[in-house]
């Protein structure tokens, strides 16, 4: 469904030039959920931004559904691929009601039966119709993230890119949003690419994941490998140990990568 090969990107010029992605390659099948894990600055969000077209000075090949996509995307691409951001408050227009936020993509893509679609997608993300004419500030963090998911779903895409969708939420709300994402994926046979720094979330959501460090993929692992701790790279092992909680002895052995 999604094929990335030798993706490279540079930021800055001259001596400040930063090779932010170094030959990143991976392949995702239809209906699969793929994770990208790494620490801040490892380039995991940059990969999503390249795929979604938010960055367009990358080099390499991005193939969606068998078609090579260029730097410039057409409308059909955006119907297929949608993005959910980390901060639900920052990504919703503060002076647009939920109704207007959800109708905008429908108008752009010239959908018909707009009212009905908005109603349907809101019930799909478990938001009642009473939320439809509210503004983002009148919703809680979890509800806002549901609206962000609804906005991505309303175009009936095949691939959803999730950039740390739950890291701004409390654990109790995180569980609700993760469940919702899993349910929708099963129902619609969606493909997910999910960025997270939380190995537990990736282990719950994804079948396979790529571990990134300083712009390169250091290891590709399956969920089973992650669950059993069967890891080959030291970087991944250290992330794994760190996710297990505080252990004074283990911390002294940490290295910088």
């Amino acid at each position: 469904m999604l094929n990335i090969s030798n993706l490279n990107i540079y930021f800055g010029h001259g001596s400040e030039k930063n090779h932010a992605l170094k030959d990143v390659s991976f392949e995702i099948k239809k209906g699969e959920s793929f994770g990208l894990v790494g620490e801040s600055g490892s380039g995991k969000s940059t990969v999503l931004n390249c795929i979604s077209g938010l960055l367009n000075h990358w080099q390499g090949t991005i193939e969606v559904d068998g078609e090579v996509v260029s730097q410039k995307r057409d409308l059909a691409f955006y119907r297929k691929v949608q993005l959910v951001f980390q901060d639900p408050y920052g990504s919703l227009h503060p002076r647009h009601t939920i109704d207007r936020t959800l109708k905008e993509p429908l108008a752009i893509h010239k959908f018909t039966d707009i009212n009905h679609r908005v109603e349907k997608v809101l019930s799909e993300v478990d938001l009642g119709s009473q939320f439809r004419f509210r503004y983002p500030h009148q919703l809680s963090g979890g509800q806002r993230q549901r609206v962000a998911v609804a906005r991505a779903l309303i175009l009936e895409p095949e691939i959803i890119l999730l950039d740390e969708p739950t890291s701004a939420l409390d654990v109790s709300i995180q569980a609700e949003v993760l469940n919702l994402l899993q349910d929708i994926r099963k129902e619609r046979n969606l493909t997910y690419v999910m960025v997270s720094h939380d190995l537990a979330v990736i282990s719950y959501m994804c079948e396979n994941c790529a571990v990134m460090s300083q712009g390169s993929v250091v290891e590709m692992i399956s969920a089973e490998q992650l669950q059993s701790g069967d890891l080959s790279q030291n970087y991944t092992k250290q992330l794994f140990t760190a996710s297990k909680g505080y252990d004074r002895a283990a911390i002294d052995l940490f290295q910088d990568f």
Partner: peptide
């Protein structure tokens, strides 16, 4: 208990996270 149960865990893949 509710808070503990809604945490996803690395080692176990329960089909659904319990919510609070």
């Amino acid at each position: 208990r509710g808070l503990l149960n809604c945490l996803p865990r690395i080692e176990g893949r329960n089909e659904r996270l319990s919510t609070l």
